[in-house]
Design a protein around this nucleic acid. Structure first.
Length: 465
RNA sequence: GGCUGAGUGGCAGAGUGGUUAUGCAGCGGCCUGCAAAGCCGUGUACAGCGGUUCGAUUCCGCUCUCAGCCUCCA
């Protein structure tokens, strides 16, 4: 039996995972800033860490999964002014939309989903401590800053030295700061901005402090795994470590996990570059499970290139798995099959979903072979296949329902119309009127419906027209 | 400038010091009224140059190319 190893950004190595409290895992992931629809990059974070939490549960751990929501920041304020919409109305709207995307991608809801604006008191308490311990100071402009020079391990996560970085590379150096890399903990409110009372006047929290406060409140000062996108490594997570460890005097996180980017034409997908596809848009053409498969088809730390061809391949792949599961009853396999063992070995190797999925295909291949010759064996393999799909959040739907499900504008013909056409074709076949039978089949094909004759039964599925 | 990561067959994408990844596409066959699905067979792949080794795509060095971060970002 292999053991779970996870790549830790702190050490840049795969490490055997040992939870702080036996049998329990505390997991925190940086979630979305809610001022717009989620794009495919956000989908990757949601899906990857959903898979991680599912697999940890699969292994028998009791998991507490926290994913925060950033519902106050500069971009939210800017967007609410732009829309002439109250900021909390705006964020509420996009939180709802995010939850819809989550459901479409078969992402389970995290155990806790704290809001930044519900955690202001905790942040203020932490900032007070930081000032008291002389890790933070009040600038001439009234903002509160964290003093990076006061934290000796600053740069440990992103593996960079303060001296090596080019301060002011992109942004003018703020002269209120002692060190250009000092960052804001509390920002004074400008006229008309949403604000909260604090010992330093009305204002709002800086970005990084919210995660330190929410994570430690929900999971304690020291917890097992903290995740997020690669781009959060610096400065966000570096700053979280600095704040949390300076405030609590304890180690903050054991294992840091960072997922790679989604790219388009070899360029990072991001809101600032404007080259993003929203989950909403992609769902118009592809099923949620196809997007999910696409995300899991490569290792979570590699770059993932988004393209229409990729989504089409994911469709073909997932359809193959569901096709294998048709017309077979899953019956629990009493012994642990080699497929399951190889699946677990792959997943234990830093969540190698690409390899794990390849094991599922091998299992599907054997299942297809045994379906006709040895139904009992096939039933066991079907059960194995479903067992592997569960932690990946794949192939959990009824196969017929999935294959019949609508997947976009091209296939709009209703199910009962399809059934009627199939009945007409059956009569034509009985009459040996092959020309008519083929014509009906071709007509359906033009409408995105593929027929498959199996003995006297005809099954159908939707495909791209 | 500093710091990361990556370059695998037509495409996508794992992995390994010597033996089949896997999926899609292609080709040949079985099955089928014909298809579809499925099954079987089929591909002289590992950026370049050196080195270590009996043997390297896999380890080491150099070169080239690409991507990411250096206070917007998942």
């Amino acid at each position: 039996m292999s053991v779970l190893k996870i790549h830790n950004t702190l050490t840049r190595q795969k490490e055997v995972f040992v939870p702080i409290n036996e049998g329990h895992v505390n997991l925190y992931v940086c979630g979305m800033t809610v001022y717009d629809f989620c794009h495919i990059g956000h989908a990757r974070v949601m899906v990857v860490f959903d898979m991680v939490s599912r697999y940890l549960r699969y292994l028998g751990y009791q998991v507490k999964y926290v994913r925060n929501i950033t519902d106050i920041d500069d971009k939210i304020i800017a967007r609410s002014i732009e829309n002439n919409e109250n900021y909390s109305q705006l964020t509420k709207r996009f939180i709802d939309e995010m939850h819809k995307d989550e459901a479409a991608l078969n992402v389970r809801h995290p155990d806790l989903e704290p809001l930044a604006t519900d955690s202001i008191d905790d942040m203020i308490a932490m900032i007070k401590t930081l000032i008291k311990k002389e890790h933070a100071y009040i600038g001439a402009n009234g903002d509160v800053y964290y003093a990076v020079d006061s934290f000796k391990n600053y740069g440990q996560l992103s593996k960079r030295q303060l001296d090596d970085m080019n301060a002011g590379e992109r942004i003018d150096v703020d002269e209120n700061k002692l060190n250009p890399f000092d960052f804001v903990l509390w920002k004074s409110a400008k006229e008309g901005e949403p604000s909260w009372e604090s010992p330093w006047g009305d204002g709002r929290p800086g970005w990084h402090i919210e995660c330190s406060a929410m994570a430690t409140c929900c999971l304690g000062n020291h917890f097992d795994i903290h995740g997020g996108g690669m781009d959060l490594q610096f400065p966000h997570h570096e700053n979280e470590i600095a704040q949390s460890e300076a405030a609590t005097g304890e180690k903050y996180v054991n294992t840091w996990m960072h997922n790679g980017f989604v790219r388009i034409d070899d360029e990072k997908m991001s809101k600032s570059l404007g080259n993003f596809f929203t989950v909403r848009d992609v769902l118009k053409q592809y099923r949620g499970e196809e997007i999910r498969f696409f995300v899991l088809s490569s290792h979570y730390r590699s770059a993932l290139n988004y393209s229409d061809d990729q989504l089409k391949e994911s469709r073909a792949a997932i359809e193959r798995l569901y096709t294998a599961l048709r017309h077979v009853d899953a019956v629990e396999n009493s012994i642990k099959s080699p497929y399951i063992e190889r699946f677990e070995k792959a997943m234990n190797d830093d969540f190698n979903t690409a390899k794990a999925i390849s094991v599922m295909f091998e299992c599907a291949n054997e299942l297809n072979k045994l379906k006709m010759t040895a139904p009992d064996e096939a039933s066991k393999l079907a059960s194995d296949l479903l067992k592997m799909g569960e932690p990946l959040g794949l192939i959990g739907q009824d196969p017929e329902e999935f294959l019949h499900s609508d997947m976009g504008a091209k296939s709009t013909i209703k199910s009962d119309a399809i059934e009627k056409a199939i009945a007409r074709r059956l009569q034509a076949k009985l009459d040996k009127n092959w020309a008519l039978a083929d014509q009906i089949r071709d007509e359906l094909k033009d409408q995105g419906v593929i027929l498959e004759d199996a003995g006297k039964e005809t099954t159908w599925r939707r495909a791209s027209a």
